[in-house]
Write a protein that binds this DNA or RNA. Structure first.
Lengths: 344, 344
DNA sequence: TCTTATCTTGACAACGTGATCGACAACGTG
DNA sequence: CACGTTGTCGATCACGTTGTCAAGATAAGA
């Protein structure tokens, strides 16, 4: 009469208790490393756990726990396949692991609707905290979650119409620095290619470009914005190259890729200087190697995770912070091409 | 006497029921789209849900549900920051979203121990299924999960000592094809740089190289293996280049990067042909542009997700499958450099 | 020895939800 | 009208776990 078929039911704390000949609470105590259990009972419980291959049901545990914590956090990025997001996710996950937390991820594709949907799903799973790369629109919908005790930290861009911490790169300084760097190599005809200005980072970077050009004393800087992908960036770059700039600054990695293609097409990769925002895999293998404004993704991930876990651990909170992480101009060649006198 | 402070407690189905003046089960019915609820009550419930900003507690729901499903899956990759893993994760997440599932991710760093730990955490959260890029060691520990009804699908490499589906690239054919391709351009002195053979994909690719060289009639192919990162690959490539091969095949993207660096250092980027396994961002912008054996990551992700959800939906299962996804040799220039007569 | 404090233990309630089941109303049929 | 059927609804239980609490055992102090 022995059970022939595996019951296909995971063993519970009750099964463990029965096998060890103790009460369920004692098993619970052992599993949670609570004191006041005789060593003998403890080892009997552990034996039972091992022989049944028992694995505690964390989600059942979390609904009963007083703090309701699930030891998980949610991360919403724009596109997981983008190297920036991928590295960020990796960093966040590393820091979460240190705190024995798991990470739920999702890509919003820059669509506010998908962002909301993901956040809703995460909250429905009762994540302890949220890290969000906000898309357009506003994040006021997050206010409700915050009030219920789910801390939110924005990454890469600040959220709109909601009180929360944010960790962002120093976009403006980065581009400004790039302009100065190019100027030091004699450039004045520096064109800029950027994403649409409704994207926070794009607006900041454009501002940096304008400020830098103003410093340079150039009255009419040449900026093209609204570039959403490599293809449109390539086309825009072709157009811009026709006006014979001596240098280009690209607002993100997709645009940089498009611009390099365009320069290749025009045969000016060695003549027109180029500085791109965001580092790229193989950037140092291009000829000329790519000079970039590199974001410190490790620092961003670390600061964001730290802020989130601080809010989680210390219930009180304190004032909301905006952390600005420095970027680093990394000269590799393409940004150090001198003007050949064709500049004005 | 109104509550001044927000209770900081998420509203429950009970609160909704009270506000709507109905029983909890009626609320449950509405939330789960069950029949037998008068339209009038339904709308009253929905109103209450909206005004309380109620959000169903999915994890509480899942412990009560008969099927115990949590609508979440776990994904273990080697390194989330690696483009291959990042794109795979994105694909998996897209397919999971279609089925209204969430994705928990983690990086094993190729350490069997971390892999087990992640799987344990995922199972403790009662994920409905697992997608695993297995590291070394064996995956027999997963047998227990499988028996409890958690389907597992291996990705990129098959698991060892456990019955489960697997979706892998046609590594051997890929490298074999690369050898043929190079041979068509006159090469016979083709060297190979690979990861350590204990990694399944590395072994397969090396086998492809050997088979291809045998076809070519080359008795003593030159292969260097055990390369774990770009730096060691670069050093190995420098050594190999000293033996004056006319072409190189690199076993993965890290090795390719190292090799290109080495060729740059030796000034032979235009003379020695190169084919790399795995596509790279900007591969088409290098000079010469990089010829690669590209894995169809979208197909891998889709097939793996499909297999997993099939097992989830149809309880029966059926025989375990090994899906082999074709790879595509993508000529861009570096693999089409002809021999200049220096070959034997 | 008794008293008091501390340790050890398990019965029971409770978390937020879905499942069961019985109560009741509305309907159709004879 | 009596009857069965179907639709509607909520009280109650159950899921696997932890919190509460009281009872018994043991140790410490007088």
């Amino acid at each position: 009469m022995a059970a022939y078929q595996e019951p296909l039911r995971a063993p519970t704390i009750k099964d463990v208790a029965a096998l060890a000949g103790v009460g369920v609470k004692t098993v619970s105590r052992v599993l949670n490393d609570e004191p006041h259990v005789r060593p003998e009972l403890r080892s009997r419980v552990l034996e039972a756990v091992a022989s049944l291959k028992y694995r505690r049901n964390t989600i059942a545990s979390s609904i009963r726990r007083l703090d309701q914590r699930t030891a998980s956090i949610g991360l919403v990025v724009e596109d997981l396949a983008n190297p920036f997001a991928a590295q960020l996710t990796r960093m966040v996950q590393d820091h979460a692991r240190e705190r024995r937390h798991l990470v739920l991820v999702g890509s919003s594709d820059g669509a506010p609707e998908q962002e909301r949907e993901l956040v809703a799903e995460f909250c429905s799973r009762r994540v302890d905290g949220l890290l969000v790369v906000p898309s357009g629109g506003d994040q006021s919908y997050l206010e409700a979650e915050r009030e219920r005790g789910t801390p939110v930290v924005f990454v890469d861009r600040p959220g709109r119409r909601v009180k929360a911490d944010a960790v962002v790169s120093d976009n403006e300084q980065g581009v400004r620095q790039a302009v100065r760097h190019l100027a030091e190599h004699g450039h004045r005809r520096i064109a800029y290619l950027g994403d649409r200005q409704s994207v926070y980072t794009a607006a900041q970077r454009l501002a940096g470009y304008r400020a830098g050009m103003k410093e340079l004393g150039v009255a009419e800087p040449q900026a093209r914005t609204g570039l959403r992908d490599s293809a449109s960036a390539q086309q825009a770059a072709l157009d811009v190259l026709d006006t014979e700039p001596t240098a280009l600054i690209c607002g993100n990695n997709l645009i940089t890729a498009g611009a390099v293609h365009a320069m290749q097409q025009r045969g000016v990769r060695d003549r027109v200087a180029l500085v791109g925002f965001d580092d790229l895999e193989l950037a140092d293998l291009l000829r000329p190697a790519l000079t970039v404004i590199a974001q410190d993704i490790a620092a961003i991930g670390r600061r964001a995770a730290d802020l989130l876990f601080q809010r989680l651990e210390r219930r009180d909170g304190g004032p909301y912070q905006r952390v600005i992480v420095p970027v680093a101009l990394t000269p590799r060649g393409s940004g150090e091409i001198p003007t050949d006198g064709q500049g004005r």
